[in-house]
Each structure stands twice: as structure tokens, then as C-alpha cells.
Amino acid sequence: METRTSKVSIVGAGAVGSTLAYAGLMRGFARTVALYDINKAKVEAEALDLAQGIQFMKEATVLGSNDVGVVEGSDVVVVTAGAKQQPGQTRMDLAEATISLMDKVMPPLIDVAPNAIYILVTNPVDVVTLAAIKKSGMAPDRMFGSGTVLDTSRLRHQVAAECDVAVRNVHAYIAGEHGDSEVALWSSATIGGLPLTQWTGRDGNVVMTEEVRERIHHDVMRSAYTIIEGKGATNYAVGAAGARIVEAVLNDQRHILPVSTLIDYPGVGEVCMSLPAVIGRNGVENHAMVNMTDEESAALEASARAIRATAERFGVG
């Protein structure tokens, strides 16, 4: 009998795609990793560079091609291709170009890998994910966006630094849009099981005051702009975040991650937005209902409306 091994394909060999491949190979998330990009020289060079480091990683085969056939047989396809965000641009400024690109990219991918789980890691991820689902006809649980997994990582990093604890002890989520209307769910956040707003420092004073929370949330929202202004692109953290999502799928980890999924938001309509969800071998298994204050609920609705307005502007949904 033929033994089938896991295969992950990454569409787009740019900064995010190649970094995601590297992060995944270092974690050993699949036995075969394929890169697909229309730029033949670029994708072959990235694949060769990655393959030549396999001695120092978990054993894997790395492929790179400008032929979509390289994606065939994939368990997971990660789409990172998209318009590049320039300094001063918002994620929504990229919508039209990236949606148009998805119209060309998705059909041939689904033809060669119809049974894969599709994860979109391209901006603006919420609107693009909605467009991809609607135009491909894929089941929403099998096609979703990276959403606010990265924003949540940024939030936890900032909170951990402020409270002087290990980041793994911080449990907090960013929900809604992956963008300027994102919502920090402070009311459900904890450190080591203790509500975040009750955490005290060595001086006995509460650390996460309203002022500190507002500053951290602002810094999280501005992180991408700061990084892009400084070095031209974000790639390390988003690559690691994307690899983590893939790992949760392939290993059926039932990990709770705030990915961008299709929901019918009451009073708003269909949108793709981020809410904590259980991620496993079938993709989005179910949503984790997180308690929210009235203020957080109102902010989340406003975020849904902002995403919906952009979707309608570009004729999506």
C-alpha cells in the first residue's frame, strides 16, 4: 500500500510566502512543501535555498515551480499572493487589486487541489476571503483567512512585556477586522487564569489600567504600519502565524485561533471576520463563544459594518 504523507503548498514566493515556508519547515509541519509562483526564477531560487537547509530541519521535500500542477495532492494550500502594502497604505487600499488577483489564482488551484483546506494570508484578508469563498463555492469551514491570529500574537506579546510574564501565560484575543477597526476583547483576557484587569505588579498596583490597555491596543493596530515604514514589509511574525494555523489543521490540534471565517452577522449580513474558532483537520470545526461587554459587542458590530461596507464597495458578497 502507498503511504500518503502530508503536503502543504504555498502560493506566492514573496516575503510572506517564503518566510511561512521556512517557519513551517523549521516546525516540521509537513513532509512535502511546495511553492507556487508565476515568477519562475524567484520560486525556483526560494525552493532551492530552503531545500539546501533541510539538513538542519526536520526531513522534508521542497518543491518550487511556476506550474500550478506543483500544488496537486495538497492537504493545505496557503495563499499569500497579493498586492504589496506600501508605506502609508491601509490594508483596504489593496482590496481591488488583490480581489482581482484571486479571480485568476483560485480556479486553477481548486482544479488541482479540490480537497485541500485553503488558508488565505493576504490583505485585506477579510474581504479577500469573502470574495474567494463566494467565487469558488468552497465550504466556509474549508476556506478561511488568517484573520487576527497575528494581531492576537502582537497583543499577547505587548501584554506579556507590560506584565513581566511569559507570553504563553497570556490569553487574550483580537477580534473583528484584521485592520483599523479590530477589537481587543479585554473583558475575557486572563493571565494564568486571573482576569487581566486584576493583575498586579511587584509594587502591588494593577498593571493593565484603562490607559495602558488603550496604549497597547493602539500599538497593536499600528504595528504593521510601523514595520512597513521601517523595512518595507512584514514577514517573520505573519509567517510564523500562518505556519501555526497550518500545523493546527494537519495535526488536528483543535487549537483555538481567531481566524477570519464567514458569518451572517445580525443586522449586518454576510462578512468574513475574526472570532476565536476551533481549528482541526476539517478546517474551522466550530466557534468558541467568548463573553463580551456591551462596549466590545458594539465595537465588534462596527467592525463588521466596516468590513461589509468595503465588500459592497467592490461588489463582493
Rank of each mutant, 00 (worst) to 15 (best):
T190I: 09
D111E: 15
T122P: 10
D141H: 12
T122N: 08
V183H: 00
S100M: 13
G192P: 05
A175V: 11
W199Y: 15
S188D: 11
T197Y: 11
Y173M: 01
Y173K: 02
G179H: 10
G137A: 08
L101K: 05
V125L: 06
L101A: 13
S188C: 10
E177P: 01
L94Y: 07
I174W: 02
T190C: 10
G179F: 03
T122C: 12
P107W: 09
D151S: 11
K104A: 14
A97Q: 10
D103Q: 12
Q158F: 11
E162K: 13
D141K: 11
A160V: 04
Q158D: 11
M138K: 13
E182W: 00
A175Q: 09
M138Q: 14
T152R: 02
T129V: 07
G179T: 06
A175K: 02
E162L: 14
A95S: 14
H157A: 15
V170C: 09
W199I: 14
D164N: 12
L185I: 15
D103Y: 09
V159E: 04
M143L: 15
T190S: 13
A175N: 02
D141L: 00
N115M: 08
R156A: 03
V128L: 12
V105N: 05
L101G: 03
T129A: 07
Y118P: 02
A166E: 15
V165E: 03
I174Y: 06
T148I: 04
M138R: 13
A160M: 06
M106H: 06
S100D: 14
V121L: 11
I117K: 10
